[in-house]
């Protein structure tokens, strides 16, 4: 008798547990909030002239497609440009402005501008609460005509302050994109 009781109890428990498990529901779609799909660098010449836009757009995030990189035109020689950066997440509609998140956590972020060729200098125009550079605003000064490259890198949680090089800063790379430029 006892045996039968225990057996039926076992069966009962098994059936109960199995019966209450989830049905065949459709999972919710996830659109990643943190993804940065688009970086737009706007270069406005100080003395007037054509504004140059550099853009890297990767709409499938870490999907297989490589980012689409565009440069709107050529830079003028020996000119100072006021630079600014806007970051967007375009997987969401409307697109989310990630620049604000970076501004809020400016002590944990820094842009690095590494140039080659006909660019004389890039200097930071903004600072975080501790007085360290952030790089959302900067000044780019071109040299004589020729070709140039500019690699823009955003690091999350770098060492701050650092000596301005990527190697010293460490941290994780949130964005890195190299633009091929022509100075004329």
């Amino acid at each position: 008798m006892k045996t039968i009781k225990i057996l039926s109890l076992l069966m009962f428990v098994a059936v109960t547990f199995t019966a209450c498990s989830d049905d065949d529901e459709t999972p919710e779609e996830i659109n990643e909030e943190e993804t940065i799909t688009t970086m737009t660098v706007t270069l406005v010449p100080d003395g007037g002239g054509a504004t140059i836009i550099l853009q890297s757009q990767d709409l499938d995030g870490d999907g297989p497609n490589a980012p689409d990189v565009t440069v709107s035109g050529n830079l003028a020689a020996n000119t100072a440009y006021s630079g600014s950066v806007v970051l967007l997440n375009e997987t969401e509609t409307p697109a989310e402005n990630i620049t604000e998140e970076v501004e809020e956590e400016s002590d944990e972020h820094q842009f690095f501008y590494v140039t080659t060729g006909s660019i004389a200098s890039v200097t930071y125009d903004d600072t975080d609460a501790d007085g360290n550079p952030v790089g959302l605003e900067f000044t780019l000064t071109t040299a004589d005509a020729g070709s140039a490259t500019m690699a823009v890198t955003l690091r999350h949680q770098p060492k701050k302050p650092n000596d301005g090089t990527l190697a010293d800063a460490g941290g994780e790379t949130d964005i890195t994109q190299t633009f091929n430029l022509t100075v004329e």
């Binding site: 940065i36 799909t37 890297s56 297989p64 490589a66 964005i175």
Partner: peptide, 9 residues
């Protein structure tokens, strides 16, 4: 390697 805006992986 695949390329994303965060660099190559």
């Amino acid at each position: 390697v695949e390329y994303t805006i965060r660099g190559a992986f």
